[in-house]
Amino acid sequence: ALLARRADRLTELAQKIAADGGQALAVAADLTDPASVDAAAEQVRAAYGRVDLIVNAAGVMLPNPVTDGRADEWQRMLDTNVSGALRVIRAFVPDLIAAAEAGGTADLVNISSIGAHVPFPNYAVYGATKAALTYLSQSLRTELGPRDVRVTNVEPGLTESELASHVDNAELSGQLDGMFDALIGLGADDVADLIAYTTSRPRHVNLRQAIVLPTRQA
């Protein structure tokens, strides 16, 4: 089940998965809207039943100096990176608990960032939202682990994604381009492969924290 805002992009991806022999459900949902998330969860359950794996991957990155005072950008990052993740957790965690109680594996995977604990100039608010997600993952383990629900926090380094397209500061955008040229960033498939490995472990094994970097990134 694929959840995101843009229905056209989701449909295109679902069609590609189907063409490759898989199965996918495209569900348009706005993670900043609680009702939209709840409706999406019901649509997923109607199609597939109880959910046993959640990957919280939605995010927005809007780097600028804090002194610019772009409160609207701060709110967008908080609404998506933190509150959006919480809305997904609220909508699906009961399913994860039920799956674990039935003897199956149950996984919550949160995609944070190396920026959660490695500071970068002008990325203070973005890094703060990811630090919040990293801490949330750590704390949730104390609640969900005793119920046999695994919580994994993944912190990628430089990764090819649409995040770079969010940057409207020409200087910072140029810096990112230079980093990709120098470091050879990860691809989405690299992160997906790590998630697949992590969630395929025996149910009593929780790989709780994974930092994945391009080899050239210190």
Rank of each mutant, 00 (worst) to 15 (best):
V167Q: 14
T129A: 09
V167Y: 11
L207G: 05
A28L: 07
A170I: 04
D95Y: 10
V60R: 06
T198C: 07
R50S: 07
V167E: 07
E143K: 06
L86P: 06
A47I: 08
L25R: 11
G145L: 00
G145F: 08
E171R: 08
V167I: 11
Q175M: 15
R150N: 00
D189P: 12
A18S: 08
V27G: 04
T80F: 00
Y135M: 15
Q15E: 14
N56T: 06
A28H: 03
A98N: 03
P121V: 07
G187P: 09
L86K: 03
I111K: 02
G145A: 09
T11K: 12
G127P: 15
G22I: 09
D38E: 15
L144H: 00
L62P: 02
P119C: 03
A218W: 10
H117C: 14
G22C: 01
G104N: 04
A106L: 08
R147Q: 12
V191K: 10
K16T: 15
E12V: 05
A35E: 15
L194A: 15
A47H: 09
A106Y: 04
R87T: 12
T129M: 08
Y48K: 13
A28E: 14
I111F: 02
D189T: 14
E155C: 04
S83T: 15
Q23E: 14
L158G: 10
V66G: 11
P119F: 08
E171N: 13
T142D: 03
N153A: 04
T105I: 15
D193V: 14
T159A: 07
A124G: 08
R201Q: 10
D193I: 13
R50V: 06
L207W: 04
A29M: 13
N206Q: 01
L108R: 00
A91S: 09
D52Y: 01
R141G: 02
D148Q: 14
L10G: 07
P34A: 02
T142W: 12
N206A: 11
T215M: 12
K130E: 04
R5A: 06
R45F: 09
L25C: 10
A29H: 14
E12N: 13
